[in-house]
């Protein structure tokens, strides 16, 4: 914690960054809220703990945060992957943001995309063992059971779009759900609209999702929508060898193609 605060203070003091985006204590001991430290005093309120799961990279693209100047963002591997995926999508330029990578109480300052790439290359890629086992358990059930589970789960969706707000890669200024001519996604929280919204959300993140889990963590109904993203990420990996957020030179899975992509279902 002290290491992080000292690092933040020195960055702010030297003028290397104007704001450090980290976590501060929230409304309960196990809750944390995003904190924008712009002075040494504010940096003293930075904390880090197990409950700090929100992907803070989401704030980098907000106009009001950009107006503060150059930012340093605190986070783990998925936050770093977000940064690289932003770079792939031309949202952040090299050197315009600093990453403060936290691991086992240590803080590493990464100032360039190359440094972030190198840092990530030394860490495990892909889904964790538990995530993979959970996906397999879901996929292993019969189609009827999968439909019963998901139609039941998605029926609970209240369409608050907290998943969209929490997702660092859902940054479109006008989302397709706001279009009403034509109205692709019905506004009401009904079975069809909920299915469509959740499928659309996952598909628009296909090959881009960095699996930070912020969507599911933000869901007030505790629907495991991150599973939909994971299944697509896994499929993009098996089919195309594509993993989002590990290299700034790789286009994401659905923006490119190979003439010899192999499939077995087209008649």
């Amino acid at each position: 914690m002290e290491l992080l605060r000292d690092k933040a203070k020195s960055l702010l003091k030297s003028g290397a960054v104007q704001v450090v985006i980290g976590y501060a204590a929230g409304s309960a001991t196990d809750r944390f809220r995003p904190h924008f430290a712009r002075s040494a005093d504010e940096a003293d309120r930075l904390v880090f703990g197990d409950g700090c799961r929100q992907n803070l990279a989401v704030y980098l693209l907000k106009p009001e945060v950009r107006a503060m100047g150059k930012a340093a963002v605190v986070g783990g591997p998925t936050t770093l992957r977000t940064l690289l995926q932003y770079a792939v999508e031309n949202q952040v330029s090299d050197g315009s943001a600093v990453a403060l990578a936290l691991e086992d109480g240590r803080v590493e300052e990464l100032t360039s995309f190359a440094a972030v790439e190198e840092y990530l290359a030394q860490r495990p890629h892909g889904l964790s063992e538990e995530d993979r086992a959970e996906l397999e358990q879901h996929a292993g059930r019969s189609r009827e059971d999968r439909w019963a589970y998901w139609s039941g789960e998605l029926a609970r969706c209240i369409r608050c779009y907290a998943c969209r707000a929490a997702c660092p890669l859902c940054y479109c200024e006008q989302c397709i759900t706001e279009n009403n001519q034509p109205q692709w996604v019905p506004v009401a929280s009904d079975a069809f609209g909920n299915l469509e919204w959740n499928v659309v959300r996952a598909m628009h993140l296909a090959g881009r999702c960095v699996n930070c889990g912020s969507c599911a963590a933000a869901c007030p109904q505790n629907i495991r929508i991150d599973l939909l993203n994971q299944v697509l990420a896994q499929e993009a990996m098996t089919q195309f060898g594509a993993e989002a957020g590990y290299s700034v030179r790789k286009e994401y899975a659905l923006s490119v193609f190979k003439p010899d992509d192999k499939e077995t279902f087209i008649r």
Partner: peptide, 11 residues
């Protein structure tokens, strides 16, 4: 290819 996998996953 990805869409089919997703739809199949949700049943």
């Amino acid at each position: 290819m990805l869409f089919r996998r997703l739809l199949d996953f949700v049943g």
